[in-house]
Simulated scan of single mutants.
Amino acid sequence: MSHSKSQTIDVALGERSYPVWIGRGLLDDHARWRSTLRGRHALIISNRTVAPLYLERVARGLEGLRWSSFLLEDGEAHKTFQNVGLALDALATLGATRDACVIALGGGVVGDLAGFTAACWMRGIDFIQMPTTLLSMVDSSVGGKTGVNLPAGKNLVGAFHQPRAVIADIGTLDSLPDREYRAGLAEIIKGAAIGDADLFTWLEQHATALNAREETALIQAIAAKVRYKAGVVALDETEQGERALLNLGHTFGHALETAGHYTALLHGEGVAVGILLAARLSERLGMSASGDTERLERLLKAVSLPTTVPAGFDPDQLLALMRLDKKNIAGTLRLILWRGIGRAEIVAGVNEADVLAVLRDATRGNL
């Protein structure tokens, strides 16, 4: 495997700006990331799948510090308040002071929970993201959104808390199952669909290379998506306006995930089906052309992502779950839709009958 040049992207947020490093072998590049730790204490939060693979390599970079680890079981179902409490107990046991650092070693679940734990301890301490899935490298590790799930819905509790650095070592993707890898590609496609038509065309041209995990194409795709997201976050850190566009398809996708009890679909798979449903709805509302929907569907299929709602889902239940979404205002659906590839926008007051029609079509297998 060739050693491609690593890339650095800066997320510009004034005094809280931070680097995102993308490349191979970065977990072992201790000189690079150790300098971002300010205090004497570190807590590595990881899970039981990732820790056996990479924890020792990170621990070697913590020599001379007081550190410990807290391991979650693997999966979205473990992103709970109970585990935040246990992680905070681990910080207490460590004697962590205000200059301590939490290190998130894992995918999005680990990153969200670790960031929220760091935001809570003494009202906010440093944390570093070390994402080990493609999805977390291109999405959840960048931008400072942290949170946990409630039985009522996903990410209903959280805080905006920016990391000190993001270390995206693409070597960790070698152990990623194909399904998880493709789920990350969904997030890259989503970014292109929202605001980068050129990237969308590039993805169409490089679908085969990305399927084969070709390293140069992969680093380029990750960097393009991170650069795009960093630009949006810099403009609108707490999602008052522009940043909400990053949620294209998410209202549909989260509803599908919740209805499937977080087991039927991975987050990235929910996003893939969700952006296609959003494109279908946009087309139905006369906002976009069928050709754009077809290009999106073709690209999703080219990287083996799902384009249909799993069997047994109830459209009325999905609509009820969509009403719970954080983007809704005063009892009307507020969705991120598009006017075609690269042109997403926020649409308030969407008629529920139109949404239900699209969901009914989708659950009848007509997607």
Results as ranks from 00 to 15, higher is better:
residue 202 W to T: 00
residue 194 I to H: 07
residue 340 G to I: 11
residue 126 D to W: 05
residue 100 A to L: 04
residue 244 A to F: 06
residue 334 R to T: 14
residue 285 L to I: 06
residue 8 T to P: 00
residue 287 M to P: 00
residue 335 L to R: 00
residue 76 E to A: 04
residue 135 L to N: 03
residue 50 V to C: 06
residue 172 T to V: 03
residue 171 G to R: 11
residue 312 G to H: 11
residue 156 L to Q: 12
residue 365 G to A: 13
residue 18 Y to S: 06
residue 135 L to G: 09
residue 320 A to R: 13
residue 276 L to K: 01
residue 41 H to A: 14
residue 124 G to A: 05
residue 135 L to M: 13
residue 27 L to I: 15
residue 350 V to M: 03
residue 81 F to D: 04
residue 88 L to D: 09
residue 261 H to V: 02
residue 308 T to K: 12
residue 71 L to K: 05
residue 134 L to W: 05
residue 91 L to E: 02
residue 145 K to E: 00
residue 354 D to H: 15
residue 128 I to K: 01
residue 120 C to R: 11
residue 129 Q to V: 06
residue 219 I to N: 06
residue 66 R to T: 15
residue 252 F to I: 01
residue 62 L to N: 09
residue 203 L to S: 11
residue 167 I to R: 04
residue 348 A to R: 04
residue 319 L to F: 11
residue 331 G to C: 06
residue 68 S to P: 00
residue 359 L to K: 10
residue 227 R to E: 14
residue 362 A to H: 10
residue 333 L to D: 05
residue 54 Y to A: 03
residue 181 Y to I: 10
residue 67 W to H: 15
residue 257 E to R: 05
residue 93 T to R: 15
residue 38 R to Q: 14
residue 71 L to N: 08
residue 315 P to D: 02
residue 5 K to A: 13
residue 168 A to I: 04
residue 284 R to L: 12
residue 78 H to E: 13
residue 247 N to M: 08
residue 133 T to M: 04
residue 39 G to A: 02
residue 144 G to Q: 05
residue 332 T to K: 10
residue 89 D to H: 13
residue 23 G to T: 07
residue 278 A to N: 02
residue 163 P to R: 10
residue 256 L to D: 02
residue 222 I to F: 10
residue 63 E to F: 06
residue 251 T to K: 00
residue 67 W to F: 15
residue 272 A to R: 04
residue 143 G to V: 07
residue 245 L to F: 06
residue 345 E to F: 12
residue 52 P to V: 08
residue 59 A to Q: 15
residue 319 L to N: 03
residue 211 N to I: 02
residue 28 D to E: 15
residue 42 A to W: 07
residue 311 A to R: 10
residue 230 A to F: 07
residue 19 P to V: 02
residue 254 H to Y: 12
residue 246 L to I: 07
residue 211 N to Q: 12
residue 244 A to M: 14
residue 216 T to D: 13
residue 303 V to H: 06
residue 74 D to V: 04
residue 165 A to V: 13
residue 365 G to S: 09
residue 60 R to K: 14
residue 276 L to V: 05
residue 218 L to E: 01
residue 58 V to P: 02
residue 33 W to F: 08
residue 54 Y to E: 01
residue 162 Q to M: 09
residue 141 S to Y: 07
residue 95 G to L: 00
residue 63 E to G: 15
residue 147 G to C: 10
residue 230 A to Q: 01
residue 70 F to M: 05
residue 28 D to Q: 15
residue 313 F to W: 08
residue 262 Y to S: 02
residue 10 D to L: 14
residue 82 Q to M: 13
residue 47 N to E: 09
